[in-house]
Design a protein around this nucleic acid. Structure first.
Lengths: 238, 238
DNA sequence: GTCTATAGCATGATAGAC
DNA sequence: GTCTATCATGCTATAGAC
């Protein structure tokens, strides 16, 4: 939080945003590898990190299409160019894969949301920034968001709880912005949690029903504007 | 469409609604059995229909919890009190189960929505009725709605297309109501499909995130009121 | 109409060569 | 660090007794 930083509002253009996110992805993967909490047995970082990235990307791709339970590790090995044995040098079990992926996306999401919101004080602007950033994030990391949403219920208790926690945090972020706006007399008095739930539901629709929106030729930016309009109409005191 | 019928607006109380739906469920199952399109090999209707209902309910219960792909037919046989062999007298394959369930819920949903909307002409009232009826339906048939949403992507092409078609029909229903309201000058001029998509997203949140709403002690009726308020705020010309 | 028993296969995971 | 070969298990589906 450097008070001197000049902050422009909102995440800027999607392409610039995408570049930033992609760069931060590798950094997060490298950090996770170095922490060693995920028990990767390959020691050489120059070999391990790119392979980890490919394994995670392939997992997301296959799981998005046919579901994580229906994805076989042979499938996965084939897609990554590894053999079954090779694959098992990176994970201890199929379940480990989920933990790895969940941690990676969770970290990145939190980092990006915090970074983009930092220094934005006005409630209306803050809400708009949160909406747009979340939409951009879920556009760039769509496979991850889709995975986190769709597979959560089938996970072992610990990981499911973690997934639910991340969702609740996002909802709490929006509820906080709304409550703050109410205190300042900018938004009308309605239950902030219900309002945040509505916002989150339409945000999730963007990545859960990607096919539909693509078919209709709706861009993220166009959708973002519509969601912002909805939120303002609903929240503003008229 | 009997013009003489006296129509009260909205689906009435949830408990009465629940009774009506449960009664119509057996009727739909019996009809499907008699049509014989699903290849059930048991001929005695008094035996077959109750068993079919139990098989479908058990499938929905297990699939909601751990996912359809992870549900084994041994699981299912155990829950229904049938053996593996007995189960296979009712279905030809695991996939058949999905077709059966999808058809049953789809028919019932269509029937109920049409029945409740019949005779309601005012766009505002029509929208409110559609919202409330859909929420009531997804509350009473929650396992089916959850299943239809969550398992769609993993299904074989034909069934997936059918699931997507049903979703699109629901969205088109709402879009039609909204467009009608616009023609009559009741609603403001925005893309009816986008607006319908928003409404559908918050309606789906009710059954997709049931745990969250239950935790907060939010009732269907309370949620319905909030959604109606959101829709009106967003659509009304002010 | 329902059961038990089993065929046939794909899966997650590991051992050991290189 | 990665591969091939293999194990044990659990699955869908069917055959045939009752």
């Amino acid at each position: 939080m450097t008070g001197a930083t000049v902050q422009s509002c909102g995440p800027g253009s999607l392409t610039a945003f995408r570049r930033r996110v992609k760069r931060s992805m590798e950094a997060v993967c490298r950090a996770m590898f170095r922490e060693g909490i995920h028990g990767v047995r390959v020691r050489n970082e120059r070999v391990a990190v790119p392979n980890l990235v490919r394994i995670m990307e392939a997992t997301l791709a296959v799981a998005n299409e046919k579901g994580f339970a229906a994805m076989s590790l042979r499938d996965l090995a084939g897609r990554t160019g590894l053999s079954m044995g090779g694959l098992y040098a990176y994970i201890g079990s199929k379940e480990d894969l989920v933990a790895l992926i969940q941690a990676q996306g969770g970290r990145q999401t939190r980092q990006v949301m915090e970074a983009e919101l930092e220094g934005v004080a006005d409630p209306r602007e803050r809400l708009r920034t949160a909406i747009r950033t979340h939409l951009y994030l879920s556009e760039v990391l769509r496979p991850w968001f889709f995975f986190a949403y769709m597979e959560a219920r089938q996970l072992p208790a610990r990981l499911r709880a973690q997934a639910i926690g991340m969702e609740r945090d996002t909802e709490a972020l929006f509820a906080g912005i709304i409550a703050d706006g109410q205190r300042r007399g900018v938004f009308r008095e309605i239950d902030p949690l219900v309002a945040a739930g509505f916002v989150k539901a339409v945000l999730q629709d963007w990545y859960l029903k990607h096919g539909k929106h693509a078919e209709r030729g709706l861009s993220v930016d166009a959708y973002a504007e519509q969601v912002e309009a909805l939120a303002m109409k609903y929240l503003e005191d008229t």
